[in-house]
Design a protein around this nucleic acid. Sequence first.
DNA 1: AATGAATGAGAATTCATTCAT
DNA 2: TATGAATGAATTCTCATTCAT
Lengths: 214, 214, 214, 214
Amino acid sequence: MSNCSFNIIIMLSKKFSRNKQEKINRIYDTFFNLILKQGYHKTSTNHVAKSAKISIGTIYKYFPKGKEDIIRKYFEESMETFLDSQDLSNMTDENIRVFLNHFVLDLFKNHEENKGYNIAFRSAIQSDQKLHEAHKEKIFIFFKGTAQKLRKINKNFNQIPEERLVETFIFIYNLINAILYHHLSIMELFDTDDKLVDYLTNLVVFSLEYLLQN
Amino acid sequence: MSNCSFNIIIMLSKKFSRNKQEKINRIYDTFFNLILKQGYHKTSTNHVAKSAKISIGTIYKYFPKGKEDIIRKYFEESMETFLDSQDLSNMTDENIRVFLNHFVLDLFKNHEENKGYNIAFRSAIQSDQKLHEAHKEKIFIFFKGTAQKLRKINKNFNQIPEERLVETFIFIYNLINAILYHHLSIMELFDTDDKLVDYLTNLVVFSLEYLLQN
Amino acid sequence: MSNCSFNIIIMLSKKFSRNKQEKINRIYDTFFNLILKQGYHKTSTNHVAKSAKISIGTIYKYFPKGKEDIIRKYFEESMETFLDSQDLSNMTDENIRVFLNHFVLDLFKNHEENKGYNIAFRSAIQSDQKLHEAHKEKIFIFFKGTAQKLRKINKNFNQIPEERLVETFIFIYNLINAILYHHLSIMELFDTDDKLVDYLTNLVVFSLEYLLQN
Amino acid sequence: MSNCSFNIIIMLSKKFSRNKQEKINRIYDTFFNLILKQGYHKTSTNHVAKSAKISIGTIYKYFPKGKEDIIRKYFEESMETFLDSQDLSNMTDENIRVFLNHFVLDLFKNHEENKGYNIAFRSAIQSDQKLHEAHKEKIFIFFKGTAQKLRKINKNFNQIPEERLVETFIFIYNLINAILYHHLSIMELFDTDDKLVDYLTNLVVFSLEYLLQN
DNA sequence: AATGAATGAGAATTCATTCAT
DNA sequence: TATGAATGAATTCTCATTCAT
């Protein structure tokens, strides 16, 4: 018997189980899955509690402002994790295509895994200006750091002014996100994932050329 | 019954009819503006009624299912209007770039004018599968018609199988929409509208080449 | 059959009865009676709704901030009504005892009828500074008006500076209220109402002498 | 077992005991201060725990019924302490004014120090009949004892039937409390404490005369 | 014994929708 | 037909209390 299933049995047999992170993860999972099924505004905190088999009190302990907080905290954690996992510092002129392909693929996987979250996030920023700004800020800070690193290491990037480079990265990031979201949540653009990733990679290469020429 | 009183009746019924449409338009405007300010799920039908200075009863008279119906009916009217205004039948190989530029520009204007609606629509389709399907269907039917026309008139288009042509058009339409929505509601991609439209036009040309080669 | 009971029958037979003031009064009555039975913090808005056979939505229509608003609005109406009913302008040195006796008696009746409200009000001002201030303000304004009138009409009152007169009236008003509330809600001071009123009248006469001498 | 380790055990148990009482006092202080700031019904046990830096579990260990118990136990301790500190047995006809002045002053100080408690207590008795009764009972027993003592010692008091004397004392006690509470928690009656105490002393003398004549 | 995470009943509040006027 | 008062289920959120550690 694995440790894991052993823990589950203990958990089930106790009225008050204690495993903070596991609970928080269960809240995230349940919430975003419900959103995927029913949409954001039909998914209530009580519904999440019942579905996750966690008391409503616990949800409000970890997320005092309810749904808003669940999205906000997940946003902080997941953005951090995703962006930190992206190391663009070894990118050179020769391998740029491969790098972009990886980046697109990572973003695609990330979107696929976080479909419910993405829907929720886009609902939330409509009525939460601060979250909207925080989102933009986080993207800006990450790509600023990336641009600075790359300009130090690579002489080709060094020829592009820092600000321009940052703008370009942010543009690319947004471009991919726009299309991925549409493909996954509004209307399929390609019938296979590979086609989508290939198209996006080419699109990015095209757009980089377009941007850096103008 | 004199001619005169007959005219009065026509006048009254026109006036009334104008009143009715005027009210419906006020509901649309108010609803989508409120959504723009506060987000979809914070905009209630009662709120719309108060803000539009129309009674809640009247709103439910014209839109028996409330918010859902407002979106659905606006969707039907506006999609129809927009797509009908697009006559792609004179498109040839020579003027295709100009045609695409117009198409992109029209879509851009349409998005700008309907920002609140677009937010609402994207919220609505998350919990309204039928609306989601109707949306896809409408797009399919329009571009099927367009493809059929073009293949009759133009021999270059005639070389492409109908199904492929339809898919391509739908892809382009979705591509532009994805980027426009992102630009207007998530994060600005260009600092001027002209730059955006120019980029999108080039992007479409690039994508058409990409799609028709693969 | 009286008009009244006829109305009740109509009311009961309709799902949506419309009688704004009657509903508001029923909310007041029910709320303050429940407070009398269970105390302020055990009386919930939902409980009031059920008990008054009014929907919770109606309560929040008339009192958007719930309990707080019920108390605040009743405070405004009842203070107004009570104070307006007190005409002290014919008070002279000769009949002052009779006037004070009436005033004490009126206050006593008012307290008796509003026992639940008084408990609620005293709970509310503990966490609602604005209400507390409004209460003081209202008392001040009423007795300022009274003092000004009396000083114009009566030469004995005219000898007392306006400010002093106002202070004295407010003191008397508070003194009586303090004792009435204690008698009705904390611990009985006399076994009959007459005794209490007589004592209070004498107390006021004593206090007036005490205050005006010092 | 050596004498030494025996002492350590005593020390530890004393230290522990001191700790316990210290915690209980911290609970009292925090609770009543919070009530003073926010009112009774906005002060939760969890809030008290956090503010007093004591775990909620510990609060429920010492006060198994929560807020109700905190008030009840404080009531028992503080009433006891206050009343026991009042020795009225040396009161004679000659020094009665001085005695009363002391009594009023002590009650005033007591009220000032226990403002939060008084608010809480008055909230609690609205929904806790037993506490209300216990309060009356305690007052009755104390003044019965006092009356009995005084009638043995002092012949003037001996002329008044015991029951009457008890009633009179209770009346005076309530009278002072009513006015002190109003002054401290509802609306200031005098701008200095001295004036209030002087007025109350005179009021008591007046009331004693009034009561014993009727 | 002390801690504080966890619970869940229930209080406060909103809002889509109905219906008397 | 238009109005908006009225409804009450559903939602958000709080808090007294329990119990695993």
